[in-house]
Design a protein around this nucleic acid. Structure first.
Lengths: 204, 204
DNA sequence: CAAGTTTTTTACCATTTGGTAAAGTTACGA
DNA sequence: TCGTAACTTTACCAAATGGTAAAAAACTTG
């Protein structure tokens, strides 16, 4: 649509990746407006105009990150299989979400920033991509409940609570680090707690 | 320390309040860097230099908001009474947190923004004010568990999960509005769900 | 290896933004 | 009601910031 869309060169692929990696960390911690092009350039050892050579604007970097994020973010939810064992499917989903919180806290915070601020760049994407998947998976959960495999409750709120609890460990890490100053073993304690909690909630 | 600390005039009290109110909404949605003094001035019908007359700097407004917030934010946790009925004390705390999410979403988002960004202006406050209270209330909960009044689990993670779930409804409202497009009745559904969930978790 | 293409760098610009100076206006106590 | 202190407004400013122009350098390919 924009340019003739030639396949990107090796250097292009590499440098776009470097830019995204640097921008991800900065946008996640300082927000969009709180991050400057100079900071991004610094963080990836490039010069400001070089960024603009690879991305049309600061906003283009942000949008690219959000788009990439969206797919990775949804895949665990999508992986919840209607044919599997209900309790283990949901617990498996929770485990994957906890793992993502631990492995990709920057992505979690980038997403949190975007949503807290009213999802200015993501709303359409939420409507078109997240909503259908969400509705479908809510349907699966509702059926499991109907069949008496797991306890009866509002499926949407169940998913919200899973998101809330799992992402909390990434998004509010600064607070948790103050309150639970032990080393990173707190991660394991969290995993155990969260799994126990939802097992109890879901058992009929 | 700064000025002779005379008692503030009526106009001063009023206008400081107007400024805080306007700034709260803007900081909550756009973050600190994403909010300009001109926006704040606009939002409260004042001129930019007038803001600086009442607050030394943009940062001073932000800090004042965070300090005020901290106290209001902690009072429900503080209200959890060791002498009361354990289950009802915790459920009462959860109800109050849900209510705050509904009544004060701006405060919740301001706090979320600050923590997601690593709590740059709040870390000392968290250490000195939140931490002691948190430890004390964790102790109370642990005792309740020891006495067999509620189910045994990690008290700190229990509190984290309460914070996560209740604040989620304020902080991620944009997402929830897309996924549960019903009117505000979703608030009631949320209240019911959350109370049911934690009752189940806490029952021995 | 020469010509052309892609990538990087230097110098620069317009706008935005936090904040100041100082004149003008209003409120308020004696 | 008059003088002074509190408050508001207008006109600015310096630094930061997103982005551009164009030359220089590096890479590719016939």
């Amino acid at each position: 649509m924009t340019s003739p869309a030639r396949k990107p060169s090796r250097i292009q692929t590499e440098n776009r990746q470097r830019i995204r990696d640097a921008a991800l960390g900065l946008f996640a911690t300082h927000g969009f407006r709180g991050t400057t092009l100079d900071q991004i350039a610094d963080a990836c050892g490039m010069h400001k105009p070089n960024l603009i050579y690879y991305y049309d604007s600061k906003e283009a970097i942000h949008i690219d990150l959000l788009n990439t994020l969206m797919e990775e973010w949804l895949s665990p939810l999508d992986a919840m299989d209607a044919e599997g064992d209900p309790l283990e499917e949901i617990i498996g989903y929770i485990r994957r979400k906890m793992e993502m919180s631990r492995l990709y806290p920057r992505e979690s915070r980038l997403f949190a920033n975007e949503i807290v601020q009213g999802a200015p760049r993501m709303l359409p994407h939420l409507e078109s991509t997240l909503k259908p998947l969400f509705d479908k998976q809510c349907g699966i959960i509702a059926k499991w409940m109907n069949d008496g495999k797991i306890a009866e409750m509002h499926p949407a709120h169940l998913i919200f609570s899973i998101w809330a609890v799992t992402q909390h460990y990434a998004d509010f890490e600064a607070q948790i680090a103050v309150l639970l100053p032990g080393d990173d073993k707190r991660a394991r304690g969290a995993d155990q707690f969260v799994e126990m909690m939802f097992r109890k909630v879901l058992t009929p």
